[in-house]
Simulated assay, not measured.
Amino acid sequence: MIVRHGTRQPSLKNIVAMKERLPQIKKLLINNSNLPNEYVRATDLESFHKWESQLKLEDEHKLAHEGEEEMLLLAERMQSRFPVLDNVYSNSSFQFKYTYSQRTKESAYNFVSGLFGRATAKDVWFPEPSEKDPILRFYKSCTKWKYNVKDKVKYSGEHKKFENSSEFIKVVENVNHRLGLKDELKTDDVSLIYVTCGFETAWKTQTESPWCLLLTEENLKVLEYREDLKYYWQDGYGYELTYKQACPMFGNMINMFQKNSSLPRSVVYFTHSGTLLKMLAHLGLYKDEQVLTSENFRAMDNRQWRTSQIDAFGTNLAFVLYDCRQEKMVLTLHQEHIVRLPSCPDSDLCELKTLVEYYSESINSCDFNHICENS
């Protein structure tokens, strides 16, 4: 099982912006004589009066309380689905591993607490994390991907082109218009509002973030598409190299399933968005017929590649091995739901030998250093 860490705190850059720029925007709204209006109600303004940032710079990227709860509940649900995973821990039956980060370490601890209870969780053994783990965070060691894909997408990707499209420009104009402003809010401001809306929704599932009130459903669709464009090209199907480099992790799973040994019974890796998305693309899941570009926003309204659904906090991808009358079969779960792999499109269970045959190139030609042109 591969698990993205639970809900976390924002990056340092976003925390600074939330602490410095959001209070300025709040002031713009509260002191605006054009408000309330037909779009912004008096109760909305009252929500902003009460809003204050509680973020601390030192909390960047740390697992949030909600993330702890997500991992506990995820473990409990998986155990109830697979009772064979009893709640008696031994380091030969269970293997857990996390990356070199606080958010995956704490996610792992809370997950094992959900499986075995907090008293036992303290005794669970974890290997020392590696800053560039070749399985859990393979892309950190891929030189070619870093320079030819990541840097390229960051500075001149399709999501950057989309920001200059008429659809995106209209969002900024629309937000200013509804808030009774001229052009005080820029692209970065609207992006910050969107990011804050997302984080505060994740942190407080029972109450609506006041920042979400400033965006219409149409605004959200446009902002979401920009985000999907970025991750499609950086971590998904945009470049073959991106998903091809995930072969070490895929091979790790196949190797475990091909062993005759019954141990370990369960292996759980705690990692990051970049790993999960590349693995999903490596498997051929959520692949649209059309390529996502800055020019086909309207045509991709029903796209499969929607990161808010396939790569949220706590995203998980699990492979379950069954021994069915001496035939090894594999069940694949994504977000705890059964998904059918391209190797077996008509069946929930896929024979292991069929899986190996379909992905034979990934298994047999996984020369990571060659793929990534590492010296």
Rank of each mutant, 00 (worst) to 15 (best):
M300W: 02
S47Q: 08
N87H: 15
E173H: 11
P134F: 10
T201S: 08
H282W: 04
R265P: 02
L276H: 04
R178W: 00
S294V: 09
R41D: 09
S273N: 13
M329S: 05
G198T: 12
D311W: 07
L331H: 05
W305Y: 10
E158T: 12
S107D: 07
K244S: 04
Q24F: 09
D44T: 15
E66F: 04
H282N: 13
L215E: 00
F138V: 14
I15V: 01
S93F: 10
Y243P: 06
C247E: 07
V330R: 00
S360T: 11
K122Y: 07
K19W: 02
L283Y: 11
R8M: 05
T271S: 14
K230V: 07
Y100V: 05
P127T: 11
D346Y: 03
N37F: 00
D228W: 03
S101C: 08
S130M: 15
E173P: 00
P36K: 06
E66K: 06
A281P: 02
E167L: 11
N34F: 11
Y147M: 14
D323C: 07
L74P: 00
C197A: 05
D311G: 15
K144V: 07
E131S: 14
R226A: 12
S191K: 15
I193L: 02
Q335V: 10
S209T: 06
F96M: 05
G274Q: 04
E68Y: 09
K328S: 09
L35D: 01
L29S: 08
E38L: 12
K62M: 11
E52H: 13
L241Q: 01
R81V: 10
L22H: 09
F96G: 02
M18V: 13
N302M: 15
Y322G: 05
P248K: 14
L349F: 05
L331Q: 11
S191R: 14
F250E: 02
